[in-house]
């Protein structure tokens, strides 16, 4: 009987008007545009959830200060790149009337082997994020390593991006080619 009945999306109270079969409901709710946004600040256990227009206020009032720069091109200079443990580096880039989070995360996979993941997220909806691409480049002539991809929305979270390596990924050996005095410069361009 249940499979023949349509049930409302669990985010009805946030504005979603869809009704779905039990089989379709979980998948829709995972992607529902009305699902509240989670705190996008990486490396915290923050359980905040709210509407998109409250995210910036939450970030600035409840978390460590995040440096923001204006412009489509920036050099994200991550310092103390060899520090041990699970580490993140975060900054904000403001351009095209939006704010973008630039995130670099390091994970110690096993003794002596570290992986770094770098990517860009829009503080905006998935539809808005679809309009932007980003390019990240490590440069130390004659070597150069670049990654280009669609900007993700903070609505998509970061776990899948890292799990699928859908970002600029490099390891301990690669970083030695590009780091200078323990700092790594990543050229970031949003278009």
């Amino acid at each position: 009987v249940a499979s023949s009945v349509l049930f409302p999306c669990k985010f009805t109270s946030f504005g979603c008007g869809l009704t779905l079969s039990p089989a379709e409901k979980p998948e829709h709710e995972e992607l529902c545009e009305f699902r509240p946004y989670s705190c996008p600040c990486p490396g915290t256990c923050c359980h905040w959830q709210g509407q998109l227009n409250a995210v910036m206020h939450h970030l600035t009032s409840h978390h460590r200060p995040i440096t923001t720069v204006q412009g489509e091109d920036v050099i994200f200079l991550a310092t103390n790149i060899h520090i041990t443990g699970a580490i993140d580096w975060v900054m904000m880039q403001a351009c095209f009337g939006h704010h973008f989070l630039l995130i670099l995360q390091k994970m110690d996979k096993y003794e002596g082997y570290r992986q770094y993941f770098a990517f860009v997220q829009l503080i905006g909806t998935r539809n808005e994020a679809d309009k932007f691409n980003y390019r990240m480049e490590l440069n130390s002539p004659p070597r150069r390593m670049a990654w280009e991809a669609r900007v993700r929305s903070i609505h998509e979270g970061i776990a899948a991006t890292i799990r699928n390596s859908d970002c600029l990924v490099f390891d301990t050996d690669i970083i030695e080619f590009f780091a200078v005095s323990g700092s790594l410069g990543i050229n970031v361009t949003i278009s």
Partner: peptide
């Protein structure tokens, strides 16, 4: 044609909480 050097921003590291690592 003018070329504007992109601004360089120093970003300090931040240690993760263990809970996040487990979620990943």
């Amino acid at each position: 044609r003018t070329y504007r050097m992109p601004k360089e921003v120093r970003v300090e590291p931040h240690k993760f909480a263990a809970e996040l690592i487990h979620r990943l």
